[in-house]
């Protein structure tokens, strides 16, 4: 009697030698990618449904590491969250990303979790990546190298596409970036709501504004606002109302704790913006 493929004892792991080979294997066998597999294996356990094959990415060292290019950072998709959290250069030049990385899980799981895995699960890093105008470098199912904004990737994710790196332009001088995680407990729990902001002030004028949210049950997205669309010159109360209205328009009607997320989210975003207002 053969055992039905329900548990991990029946899963074959495939070991590609390159990113392109990984894609080819994934397509040929219709097999998922696994990196740290911290979230994936738990969802497979829950449904008692492990795949017949999975493509292991951990051997692909070219996908690991953070590189500073001329005017951008290139972060390998398999860079661990621990590496992101502990990278001192990143902490100095891209503190938003450092902070976001530290907010994920706890030290142990950060060793296993990767940048790509976090994106795949629409995790804690997403709002920060969105406000930083992140670009996704990936290989499509036909083996072609592609690049597109993260916002576009989110709209039409390609399951067999393999993210190889993220490219993040260095924020302009005068940029203020902030993020905050709203959760039930001080540490090590899924986000109810992450909010991130990037403000670029030049000569006393707000030239660029990005606000983004995401959460455990909330698709990450940039808020539909601009420096001109928000009443930044008015009182905090008015700004708060406008932010509440924006969140109200974005958050799905059925989402859990909706009123709380709007209320707290607006306050957090207001706080991120208002210290810089006149």
């Amino acid at each position: 009697m053969t055992i039905a493929v329900t548990d991990r004892t029946q899963t074959h792991i495939l070991f590609p030698q390159s990113a392109f080979e990984a894609v080819a294997l994934a397509v040929r066998h219709q097999a998922p990618y696994i990196a740290g597999a911290t979230a994936l294996q738990l969802s497979w356990n829950k449904t008692a449904n492990w795949p017949t094959q999975a493509v292991a990415l951990s051997g692909l060292s070219e996908l690991i590491g953070c590189k500073r290019l001329a005017s951008s950072w290139q972060l390998g998709a398999l860079t661990s969250l621990a590496e992101l959290a502990n990278n001192s250069a990143l902490a100095e030049y891209m503190p938003l990303l450092s902070q976001a990385a530290v907010s994920v899980g706890a030290a142990g799981v950060r060793q296993l979790g990767t940048l790509a895995g976090n994106i795949g699960f629409a995790g804690d890093l997403m709002p920060s990546l969105l406000v930083l105008d992140t670009q996704v470098l990936w290989i499509d199912q036909h083996g072609r190298s592609q690049q597109q904004p993260l916002t576009q990737w989110l709209e039409a994710p390609q399951p067999q596409g393999l993210i190889t790196a993220l490219q993040i332009p260095v924020p302009l001088a005068g940029s203020i970036t902030r993020m905050e995680k709203l959760a039930s407990r001080s540490a090590f729990n899924p986000p109810l709501l992450n909010v991130a902001s990037l403000q670029c002030w030049q000569e006393g004028q707000l030239q660029k504004l990005r606000l983004a949210i995401g959460g455990n049950a909330i698709q990450p997205s940039l808020l539909p606002i601009s420096p001109h669309s928000l009443p930044l010159q008015d009182s905090r109360r008015v700004l708060n109302s406008a932010l509440r209205a924006t969140l109200d328009s974005i958050l799905p009607l059925g989402c859990a704790q909706r009123d709380y997320l709007i209320s707290a989210g607006a306050k957090l975003l207001c706080d991120q913006l208002s210290p810089n207002l006149s």
């Binding site: 991990r8 792991i13 070991f15 696994i34 597999a37 294996q41 060793q111 296993l112």
Partner: peptide, 16 residues
Amino acid sequence: QLDGAAVPACLLLAYQ
């Protein structure tokens, strides 16, 4: 400890 880093063994798969 995996190569010196503290990691939960319940999440590590053999091949890793």
